[in-house]
C-alpha cells in the first residue's frame, strides 16, 4: 500500500499524461476507419450529384418547368409533375399535420397508461416501418375503389398522408416529450387545466420541433413514387393539378422522372430525366433547409 501523499498523486497524474503508444495507435486507426466510412457515404453522394448535374443542367430552362410533357425532348417539360407534387405537398400537410399532431398530443399528454394505449403506440411505431408500396395498395383499395374517389389527386394525397402519419406522430411525440415537466407542473400549479397548459405552453414550446418533423416527413412524401403510381398518378396528363381540384387526375415529379427514364431516346432517358431529378432534389433541399433552419432558430431554450 503506497502512501497517498500529494507528491505521489502528482507524480501519478503526470505519468498518466504520457499515453502508452499502443493505445494511441489503436485509437488513431479506429478514428481513421470511422472517417473512411463517412467519406464513402459522402463520396458516393457527390459522384451521383455531379453525374446528374452534368447530364441535366443543360436542359434546366424556365420553359422546362412551365411546359407539359411532349414527345419531343426539346419541347417537353415537367409542369404537370411539379404542380402535382406541390399540390400533393399542400394537401398532405393539411391532412397529416392536424391528424398527426392531434394524435401525438393525445398519446403524450392525455392518454391513460393502459394496455390499449401501449398497443396503439406499438402499432404506430411499426407502421412507420411499413414499405410504401403497401400504403399504395391500401390507398388504391380504400380511396380509389371502396370510397370511389377514383385515380384522383385526393386519392394520392390521402394515401401519402397515411404514409407520413406515423412519422409525424412519432416526431410530434418526441418534440412534446422534450418540453420539460417543470413547464407542465408550473402551469397546472397556477390552476390552469391540462388542456390550457397543453395548448398555451407545451404545444407552442414544442412547435418548432414538430414543424421540423413534419417538414422532413413531407419531403419523404414528395419523393415517393410507388404509392402515387398505384393510386393512378398519370404521366404527361395535362392535368391542371390545382390543389383545390381534388377529384381531377394528377401527376407527380417522381412519376414523370420514372416515365422519362423508361423512354428509349437518350435525350429523355439521360438529359430530361436528370433535369427533372435536379428539380426534385432542389425541392427536397429547400424543404430540408427550412427544417434545419427551424431547428436551429428555435433551439431548445430550457
Amino acid at each position: 500500500m503506497t502512501m497517498h501523499t500529494p507528491q505521489v498523486s502528482a507524480r501519478r497524474a503526470v505519468a498518466a499524461l504520457d499515453a502508452p503508444t499502443s493505445r494511441g495507435f489503436r485509437e488513431r486507426a479506429f478514428a481513421g476507419l470511422l472517417f473512411a466510412a463517412t467519406i464513402v457515404g459522402v463520396l458516393v453522394l457527390a459522384v451521383l450529384l455531379v453525374d446528374v448535374v452534368v447530364d441535366g443542367v443543360g436542359r434546366l430552362r424556365p420553359e422546362f418547368l412551365g411546359r407539359y410533357a411532349s414527345r419531343f425532348p426539346d419541347r417537353t417539360g415537367i409542369r404537370a409533375g411539379l404542380t402535382g407534387s406541390l399540390s400533393l405537398l399542400v394537401l398532405v400537410a393539411l391532412v397529416a399535420f392536424p391528424l398527426g399532431v392531434g394524435a401525438a398530443i393525445y398519446l403524450e399528454e392525455f392518454a391513460p397508461d393502459n394496455r390499449f394505449t401501449r398497443l396503439m403506440e406499438a402499432n404506430i411505431a411499426n407502421l412507420a416501418g411499413v414499405p410504401s408500396v403497401v400504403y399504395g395498395l391500401l390507398g388504391a383499395a380504400v380511396f380509389v375503389y371502396i370510397l370511389q374517389m377514383g385515380r384522383s389527386l385526393i386519392s394520392g394525397a390521402l394515401t401519402l398522408s397515411l404514409l407520413v402519419l406515423p412519422v409525424v406522430i412519432v416526431a410530434g411525440r418526441e418534440a412534446l416529450r422534450a418540453v420539460p415537466r417543470g413547464i407542465r407542473d408550473g402551469g397546472l400549479a397556477l390552476g390552469a387545466t391540462p388542456w390550457q397548459v397543453t395548448a398555451r405552453q407545451v404545444l407552442p414550446a414544442a412547435l418548432p420541433g414538430i414543424m421540423t418533423g413534419v417538414i422532413l416527413a413531407l419531403s419523404r412524401a414528395v419523393g415517393e413514387t410507388a404509392p402515387v403510381l398505384l393510386v393512378g398518378a398519370l404521366f404527361s396528363r395535362r392535368a391542371s393539378n390545382e390543389p383545390w381540384s381534388v377529384l381531377e387526375s394528377f401527376s407527380a415529379l417522381p412519376v414523370e422522372i420514372f416515365n422519362f427514364v423508361s423512354r428509349p431516346q437518350e435525350a429523355f432517358k439521360v438529359e430530361v430525366a436528370s433535369a427533372a431529378i435536379l428539380v426534385l432534389l432542389a425541392l427536397l433541399l429547400v424543404m430540408n433547409s427550412v427544417a434545419i433552419l427551424l431547428r436551429n432558430r428555435f433551439q431548445r431554450r430550457w
Binding site: 413547464i183 408550473g186 397556477l190 430550457w302
Partner: peptide
C-alpha cells in the same frame, strides 16, 4: 391548485 399555489425547487419559468 388555483387557491393553493406552488413554487418549485428548480425555477421553472415558461419559455415566454
Amino acid at each position: 391548485r388555483r387557491r393553493i399555489g406552488m413554487v418549485f425547487q428548480k425555477p421553472n419559468p415558461f419559455p415566454k
